[in-house]
Every structure is written in structure tokens, then in C-alpha cells.
Design a binder for these strands. Structure first.
Lengths: 197, 197
DNA sequence: CGCAAATGTCAGCGCCGTCAACATCGAGTA
DNA sequence: TACTCGATGTTGACGGCGCTGACATTTGCG
């Protein structure tokens, strides 16, 4: 009988997966390391053999989030249609991600993980890749635009879609989400405004 | 000699003011009730005679923030120029507020205080007033627009400006904020995109 | 004056992240 | 095969947190 072996086997990956499940729904502040350790059947200090501290674990979770998002972006960029259509699809990928995994989305775009002088190393690659894919989607919609214009458009487009998602999640549009405007119409208006007609 | 009287005098207002100072810079998570109590010279439990819990104090701080923002909005709406110019000024008021008091801004627009089924009573009035003023600014820029259009425009405009501020504060635009694009140009591009040319 | 309500203090609960010291196990080598 | 050592997990403890209940002081009202 091999009940409760002393060593876990692959505690690091197990912790990331379990933390991801918690963060996806409840965000970073819903994650308790003690609770997490207990939930995977290990003592409270065990996680510290694999992560320097709570932030390092959260950085790994966020990195997974960026990787998943990038898969969606790649698909959007490879989809049929013209550049403008692909940019709309990329926006929809971002929106779907935010709505399906709100807590993870918040960790990725609201936390200060990437705001530091030295962001967590695991996070830099996936995050930069996401930026590049978004950039490519915007540039592909108008091949005649120069660098300056593409940068400005990327920022305004991202701002509009992200701002809508963040304010909507915080229920700040409650007073506006009434007849005669349906939610689907709002999302459509936001995508149209973001991608420029 | 009246050194250290047993009763503070106006602890409630003192606590709100001290909490506001902390939150303005560091956001809600930088606020420790124990630390706050000590900083104003009372015991750890004293704040609980004036606020049911931490959230109620934060709600009062956020309410102050909305009141201050509304003062700026009123000034923007009373400024000379046409409706479109006033909407641009209102956007600038919002941007200035976010840049001067980032932690307070975060508490007001990112926390879940207003997302609850029953938001804190002190917060409802000031927050709704802010919505109304923003609505008026957008409606004033195009008196011919119907309700549906005004709602959609308010949402997209607010989303664009807020999204830029939030992503910028989280340093998500780091890869884009390079030559040949200056920061002032970016802000101008965002305001232009938000207010519709 | 006397008493109750308002407002403060103190001790303590359970939670948290984190660390140091110790225990156990598995892999490589003499 | 036996030994050792590094990797990995456990236990106990520390300080900090929000919050509560019991108690102390002050103020204001009848």
C-alpha cells in the first residue's frame, strides 16, 4: 500500500495547476498558500521548496495565462478574412478570455507583477509575446500605416477593449446597461470603436 | 495639562483623512487598520467604534474621492466652449485625477465596493452623481443623439480613457512608449479616440 | 447628582506569509 | 551493497492582520 508517500512527485506543477484554478475565478487575493498546500495534501511550508514566495507562484500562474491568451491570438491571426476582420477576432479572443477567467485576467492586467523594475523572469517572455501578437494584428489591418500610427492605434484599441472589460467587471456600467441598449449591442459598439469602424 | 485625553475629539473624520492620505498613494491594500489607529494615537480597536469594518472606512474614503472628482466635472461642464470641448476637458479632469491620486482612483474604479448587490450607502450618491455628470458631458457634445447612442458613446469613451489609465499605471504600455511616440502624443491620441475626433 | 450612552482600552481569536530546524527519501558513488 | 548528500517535506514559531467581547472612561441628559 502506497498511501501518503513522503514525497509528492510533482508538487511544483500541482501547485501551479491548483493555484490557477483558484485565481481564475477569485483573483490573486483569493489565493492562500496555506489553504492551497492543504488542498493538495502537503504541509504549509512545502510550497517554499518550489517558490521563493507567494508572488513567484502568482507569476507562474500569470505566465500560464499569457500563454493561453497567445494561443488564441495566434489562431486569430491565422484566421481567414482581411486584416481588419482578424483584428476584430483578436478583440473577441481577449473579451472571451476576460469573461471566462476573470480572476486570471485581473492578475495579468491589473496586478503590479509587470510594473516592477525587474518583472518576474517567467512572465517576461509570454507577456512580450502577447504584445507582439497584438501589434501584428493592428499593423495587419492597415499595412500603409507607419510605426507611430500603429503604436497609437494599438494603445487606443487595447485601452478601449480593456477599459470596457474592467469597468464592466467592476459593475460600473450598471446605470447604463438598461433598455433600449442590450449587452450584445454594447460589446459590438466597443469592438467597433476599438477597431476603428 | 491636557496631554493625551481619553477621548479623541473627532476620531471618525481624523481616520477618514488619514486613510485617504494612505490610500491616495498606495491603494486600498496599503491600508492597515492597526497601523492607521496607531498613527493617529488611538488603540487598535478604537476605529471599530466608528466603522463596522475595514470596508466601511474604505467606502467613506472612496466617497470622498467621487465628491472631489465631481467638483472637477462640474467645472468642466461650466467651462466656455462648445459641448465637444467640454467633453475633452472632462476627459482631462479624469486623467489628472488618476495621475495625481492613483491609489484612490484604483479604489474607486477597480475595487468591488460598487459591484455588490448592496453597495455601501455613502458611496451610492456620489458615484451616481459622477455617472450623471459624465452622461451630461457626452450628451452635450451632440444634442441630436438619441438615448441609445448617448449610452453607447458614454460607455466607449469612458472605456477608452479608463483603459488607458489603468493599463498605463500597470506599466503595460512599456513596450510601446518609445520613440517616435511621446507620452503627450499618446494622451492626445487617446482623448481624440475617446471623444470621437 | 446620577445614570446611561458614547467612546476609548486591552486581551485574545483565527487567519495569513514566512522562516529555521529537523525528518525523510532517492540517487550516485566507494 | 552500504554510505552519504542533496532534494524535498514537516513542525513549530514569529509577527502582522481584521475583528470581537469584556471592561474603563468620559460626556451629556433627566
Amino acid at each position: 500500500m502506497n498511501k501518503a508517500p513522503y514525497h509528492h512527485g510533482d508538487l511544483r506543477q500541482t501547485l501551479i495547476a491548483a493555484a490557477l484554478a483558484v485565481v481564475e475565478r477569485g483573483g490573486a487575493e483569493a489565493l492562500s498558500l496555506r489553504e492551497l498546500a492543504e488542498s493538495v495534501g502537503v504541509s504549509r511550508a512545502a510550497p517554499y521548496r518550489h517558490f521563493a514566495d507567494r508572488d513567484e507562484l502568482l507569476a507562474c500562474v500569470a505566465a500560464r495565462g499569457f500563454e493561453d491568451l497567445n494561443v488564441g491570438y495566434e489562431a486569430a491571426l491565422a484566421s481567414p478574412g482581411d486584416g481588419h476582420a482578424r483584428m476584430r477576432i483578436a478583440s473577441q479572443v481577449y473579451i472571451d478570455f476576460a469573461e471566462r477567467r476573470p480572476g486570471l485576467f485581473k492578475l495579468m492586467f491589473e496586478s503590479d507583477l509587470l510594473a516592477r523594475d525587474q518583472p518576474p523572469p517567467v512572465l517576461i517572455g509570454p507577456a512580450n509575446h502577447a504584445y507582439q501578437l497584438l501589434w501584428r494584428a493592428v499593423a495587419g489591418a492597415d499595412p500603409t500605416a507607419d510605426e507611430k500610427t500603429v503604436k497609437a492605434r494599438t494603445i487606443t484599441m487595447w485601452s478601449t477593449v480593456y477599459g470596457f472589460l474592467a469597468l464592466d467587471r467592476a459593475r460600473r456600467f450598471k446605470p447604463f446597461m438598461t433598455q433600449p441598449l442590450t449587452r450584445a449591442e454594447i460589446v459590438e459598439a466597443v469592438i467597433t470603436a476599438a477597431t476603428g469602424v
